[in-house]
Each structure stands twice: as C-alpha cells, then as structure tokens.
C-alpha cells in the first residue's frame, strides 16, 4: 500500500516542521523528493539525512519569477514532478481593523499566489503523463476563521476553492487535487506557547492534544498514493475533532 517508488515529489516549505516530515514520509514510501524552502541550511541537512533521492531546490515564494522557475528546476533535477505538495505558508497576524495592505498582500502572495503558480507550472507534464497528485496544505482556519488571521484564513480558504477547481478540470487526465487542513500541530511555532496557553488550546480539541507533523504527513502520503486515485477535490481535515467539517 501507498508505494511511491519511481514517483518524484516537490515539497515546498520543507525546511519547516510539517513540510520536513511530509518530505521524509514520501521519501520513505520510495519517492524522489525535491526539498524547497527559503532557508538552505535546514534543507541541506534534511537532504543529507535522507541520502539518495533527495534534491535541494531553494526558492523564495514571494518572488513570482523564482516561483515560475521552480517546477522547471525540479524537473531538471528529478526528471518529473508527479506529486506537488504546496505546504509553505507564512502568517502576518493582526486584528482586521489594523491590517495593512502589506500584511494582506504578503500572505496572499506566498500562501495562495505561489500555490497557483506552482500548480500551473506542473500541470502540463502531469497532463501528458496522465498521472499527477496535487496536495495543497490548507488550514482549519480556512474553514472556521480565526481572530487576527483574516489574511491567513482568506489565503487558506482560497487554496481550497482553487484546489476544487483544478480537480474539476484535471480529473479526466488522471490528476487529483486535494487539500489537507491541519488543526493545531506541535511544531517549533507552538513550542513557544506556555503551559497555560497549551492547556487552553487542548481544551478546545476533543482529542485533548495537539497533532503531530507525522499525522499530517500520513494524510499527504495517502492522497499522494495510487490508492487515492478516486479521491479528488476534497479537503482532508486532520484536527483531532476540533472542527468536524
């Protein structure tokens, strides 16, 4: 089950907690992985850890030209991009009344526009090969909203609508497009919270704990697999029951 031998996967945000784990899990399933991110050092460390079948492909997702070039670089390095995981994302939290144009635009550019550009960039070769997996990492916040995150929530909800549209257009060509929407996941970002804050978060989660990056990666692995070929246009919520959508 879930064998990705011979498949090539491009993962953005692979220098982060969730993206790194996604890359590891896809790699362990036999895929060749392209590790993209802005910080080169963690990408190289991860590539070294993985050994063979790992390529470092740095990219600044706020630079449109660099984003358009990334699929070509990935194909040059790996031979193809059969699986695209748009995991990279940024936050610029601010209450809505004080949100600046820049807070809004930078989040939309990196989270939503770069995802669009990368999906577009891999579409032609996926259409030709009659096989492709697009997995966009959205967020629970895209469905529920969150105070202070109007920009982030809009970008994550936008990803879901875009993913469904791509799914419609490409289903007849063996390409699936799905989203994964994590809830609270324990990463470097949540480690900064104190025990009291963590307890308050856990009280809102039926599972009474944060999720792990491995639990997100497992959802991605499933959607990337040949076995998930009939699953398209869906959003897989991985949130411990925090929002049952």
């Amino acid at each position: 089950m879930f064998d990705l031998t011979g498949k090539c996967a491009l993962v953005t945000g692979a220098s982060g907690g969730i993206g790194g784990e996604i890359a590891k899990v896809l790699h362990a399933a036999g895929a060749t992985v392209g590790l993209s991110g802005t910080r080169v050092e963690p990408l190289e460390a991860l590539a070294e850890e993985l050994g063979e079948r790992a390529h470092v492909l740095p990219c600044n997702l706020s630079d449109g030209e660099a984003v358009d070039a990334l699929p070509k670089q990935a194909i040059a390095a790996m031979g193809s991009v059969d699986i695209l995981v748009n995991n990279a994302g940024i936050t610029r939290d601010q209450i809505f009344m004080r949100m600046s144009d820049d807070d809004w635009q930078s989040v939309i550019d990196v989270n939503l526009t770069s995802t669009m550009r990368l999906c577009r960039g891999v579409m032609r070769p996926m259409m030709k090969s009659r096989w492709g997996r697009i997995i966009n990492i959205s967020s629970i916040v895209g469905a529920t909203g969150n105070p202070g995150q109007a920009n982030y929530a809009a970008s994550k909800a936008g990803m879901v609508g875009m993913t469904k549209s791509i799914a419609y257009e490409t289903a007849s060509r063996g390409i699936t497009a799905n989203a994964v929407a994590p809830g609270f996941i324990a990463t470097a970002m949540t480690e900064k919270l104190n025990d009291d804050q963590k307890a308050k978060i856990n009280a809102q989660i039926p599972a009474s704990r944060m999720g792990s990056p491995e639990e997100i990666a497992a959802a991605v692995l499933y959607l990337a697999s040949p076995e998930a070929g009939y699953v398209t246009g869906t959003t897989l919520h991985v949130n411990g029951g925090m929002a049952m959508l």
Binding site: R124, M127, K128, E169, T170, S172, R173
Partner: peptide
Amino acid sequence: SLDTVELVM
C-alpha cells in the same frame, strides 16, 4: 477545452 490544450501540446 482540455483536449484543445492537449492538441496544441
């Protein structure tokens, strides 16, 4: 419409 894109390709 997808066929026409593929024909061009």
